[in-house]
């Protein structure tokens, strides 16, 4: 399949956050401010793409020939955890500016179900290596987009005195996410699979 179509499909049509509920914790946890949302979004996009680029060949060239496909849960989570640690050390050493903006989000990413979920989906569906990487990049972009949009809405609505007290905070975030999810349904049928 055309990689561009895969990218659009993962980012908009099948947005992993708003239609498949992956990565709910950071989606509601760090969407109070647009700045932090941006940092978290980019950190997820970066680690997600890298994680799929490693787990996909690992599964197909090591686990499958050894007949050990059932070990994927254990192996993937270890790969992601060590990858996150490695990325953190690398950024700290080589890219101080980037580390300053993304650093605090990296430890949280290890237990981010969006990253683990996308790597699992990539080996469950018959994706080639390119498709898998592009699919996770699209998923990361979709996550970034959804997080940023929700943060924008919450920044405005949490300071609005017209909103009743029991609506504020979590309920309003959930209703906004629901409306965003309905809006994203408009992309359905954009791509014929």
């Amino acid at each position: 399949m055309n990689p561009f179509m895969v990218l659009i499909g993962a980012a908009l049509v099948n947005n992993y956050v708003l239609t498949q509920f992956l990565g709910m914790c950071p989606f509601f946890g760090v969407s109070n401010k647009t700045e932090t949302a941006l940092g978290m979004g980019f950190a997820v996009l970066f680690v997600m793409t890298l994680a799929s680029a490693i787990t996909h060949p690992f599964y197909h060239y090591i686990l499958v020939p050894l007949n050990a496909g059932y070990l994927q849960t254990v192996v993937f989570i270890l790969i992601i955890a060590s990858l996150v640690q490695f990325v953190e050390m690398f950024l700290k050493k080589s890219f101080r500016a980037l580390y300053a903006s993304l650093g605090i989000f990296l430890p949280m990413i290890t237990t981010n179900c969006a990253i683990f979920g996308v790597t699992l989906i990539n080996v469950k569906d018959p994706h080639s290596f390119t498709e898998a990487v592009v699919n996770s990049a699209g998923a990361g972009i979709g996550f970034l987009l959804a997080l940023l949009l929700l943060a924008g809405v919450r920044e405005k609505s949490d300071n609005n005195p017209d909103i009743p007290e029991i609506f504020k905070g979590f309920p309003l975030a959930l209703f906004s996410a629901g409306l965003m999810s309905i809006a994203l349904m408009g992309f359905q049928g954009l791509i014929k699979f």
């Binding site: 239609t19 029991i166 959930l174 209703f175 629901g178 309905i182």
Partner: peptide, 22 residues
Amino acid sequence: LMAPGAFFTLGVIIMVMKFYRA
């Protein structure tokens, strides 16, 4: 049954809980 329904249902449940606590 679709994705938005899940968000709305949980939103209403939490709102009721907040109302009760208040």
